[in-house]
Design a protein around this nucleic acid. Structure first.
Lengths: 132, 132
DNA sequence: AGTGAAGTTGACGCGAACGTAAGGTCGAAC
DNA sequence: GTTCGACCTTACGTTCGCGTCAACTTCACT
């Protein structure tokens, strides 16, 4: 059941569309913790889960260091309570930041939409048929 | 009426909480176009407007180059039609990207909220009073 | 034994977005 | 007349997130 879930670096790269360099870099930054078979990396199910979160975090503009802190939240198990509490507060700040960002994003989308309406008007008044 | 709207670099820095280096850098990248009084920069009302948009764009992870292209949309006046149309399509892509990002952000917020619920549960079960 | 694919560890390179001296100018203040 | 604060230019330094060799090793095949 927990077998065959181990992937080589090549399989991971194909699965997630990243380069080997990227995965090694993430390991060096302690974002991933593949096992070793001799010198070769074996990525676990846990690593895949973490990678999903890493890639998502990146899309929001979080730094790898910020992501690393957030990842701890997903690995609550045998950690210290103080560590958990600290991670929790980090996540809370992050959550607030994300909510704020969403609000700004909503505004920005509205603004951009308005500006594009404006542009369409101008284009039409000039008789250019480039607006959808 | 259009008087006294000119600001020195120092005033701008205070107003927007940026460094002089940043404003000069933006000028070098043609994001801002302050007038000159001798060698000293005089930032106009237009520059302030653009700076607002620059800072917002940055919060969404747009590159300065992308922002520069978007800024053109706000300066439609005596431009060429082809230029406007090109800028329009750039903005359209950007808008789609922003909408996609908002959708992902919504998901991520939900996930993070769920994880924090999870963390709270664990903290409570361990009798730690750090959860709000 | 040889070849090739896939993996490894350095180590240097790079573009973005500024930071950070280092040194020069210029007008107002003392 | 010099000192001071605010500004200027030039230019090298820095962090992030990898890309890109270079130089092996290891293993499966033939």
């Amino acid at each position: 059941m927990t077998e065959d879930t181990f992937s080589t670096i090549g399989q991971m790269c194909e699965e997630f569309d990243v380069t080997p360099r990227t995965l090694r870099f993430y390991e060096s930054k302690e974002l991933l913790f593949p096992k070793r078979e001799g010198s070769r990396r074996l990525f676990t199910r846990s690593d895949r889960g973490r990678l999903v979160l890493i890639l998502r975090g990146k899309r929001f503009g979080f730094s790898l260091e910020e992501i690393r802190q957030l990842l701890d939240l997903y690995d609550i198990g045998d950690q210290q309570q103080t560590q958990i509490a600290r991670t929790y507060s980090v996540a809370l700040e992050r959550l607030e930041a994300m909510r704020a960002q969403r609000a700004e994003l909503d505004d920005a989308i509205s603004e951009l939409e308005a500006q594009m309406d404006h542009a369409r008007t101008i284009l039409k008044s000039r008789g250019v048929g480039a607006a959808a």
